[in-house]
């Protein structure tokens, strides 16, 4: 690890003290606390929809953090994709599975103590490790590293092939999601037509999707 740090070349003597933070650091810390708090609430709350909404807060805060780290384009993509689509998808999922609105006493499984132990252990281990390794590392934030222009340049000069492969992956995921979420009886084709149903059989029972 020391060789990696030496190669990075941005190690500077401990001139930058943690006791005299810069303005960016203060904002980062504040937003970080917000993100962490939102995340914790999101994984502990008993209200399922609230959890999704707290997730929005956490992800939005992360977008701010990206901005603070000068990754402009990534931050906007984060807002677009996560806040715009993922969370909406999650909310739709909650609705479609008829998640209870309001406090749900069964939001957590019986695995909670184990989860707490594993989470705490991993946090302790990783924090120790990370603090020990990067205590004296300094990020030089001068100069824009993530503007849209710059991102477009490297993305379409160096990363074209992975980018295209990723588009294929997305397509496959799309097709897979459709195949998975289609009902087994072939969708609407297999269902009797409404008119016929009304004339033939007065009962509304067959209109129910063929579940179970």
């Amino acid at each position: 690890m020391s060789t990696l740090l030496a190669a990075a070349g941005s190690l500077e003597p401990a001139a930058r003290s943690y006791l005299s933070p810069t303005g960016q650091e203060i904002v980062f810390l504040l937003v970080g606390v917000l993100v962490l708090g939102a995340a914790v609430v999101s994984v502990t709350t008993r209200q399922l929809v609230h959890a999704a909404l707290w997730l929005v807060v956490a992800l939005g805060g992360l977008a701010v953090e990206f901005l603070l780290l000068t990754a402009e384009f990534v931050a906007w993509v984060q807002v677009l994709v996560y806040l715009g689509s993922v969370v909406v998808l999650v909310l739709f999922g909650l609705m479609l599975t008829r998640a209870p609105i309001g406090r749900s006493p069964e939001a957590d499984s019986g695995n909670r103590p184990a989860a707490l132990a594993v989470g705490a252990a991993s946090a302790a281990t990783l924090v120790t490790l990370v603090v020990d390794a990067f205590r004296s590392s300094w990020i030089d934030l001068s100069g824009a590293a993530g503007t849209t222009r710059l991102t477009g340049e490297y993305l379409f000069s160096h990363w074209v092939l992975p980018f295209e492969a990723l588009s294929v992956l997305l397509l496959a995921a799309l097709v897979g999601a459709i195949v998975l979420s289609r009902s087994k009886d072939g969708g609407t084709d297999a269902r009797p037509r409404a008119g016929k149903l009304r004339t033939g059989r007065p009962s509304a029972a067959p209109t129910k999707p063929k579940e179970r």
Binding site: S109, N111, V118, A121, S122, T125
Partner: peptide, 18 residues
């Protein structure tokens, strides 16, 4: 229960890391 399996897996990973 997938969560149980996953707990064991992650606990093992953390243990190995330590």
């Amino acid at each position: 229960n997938a969560q149980g399996y996953l707990s064991a897996l992650l606990a093992g990973a953390v243990l190995l890391a330590v």
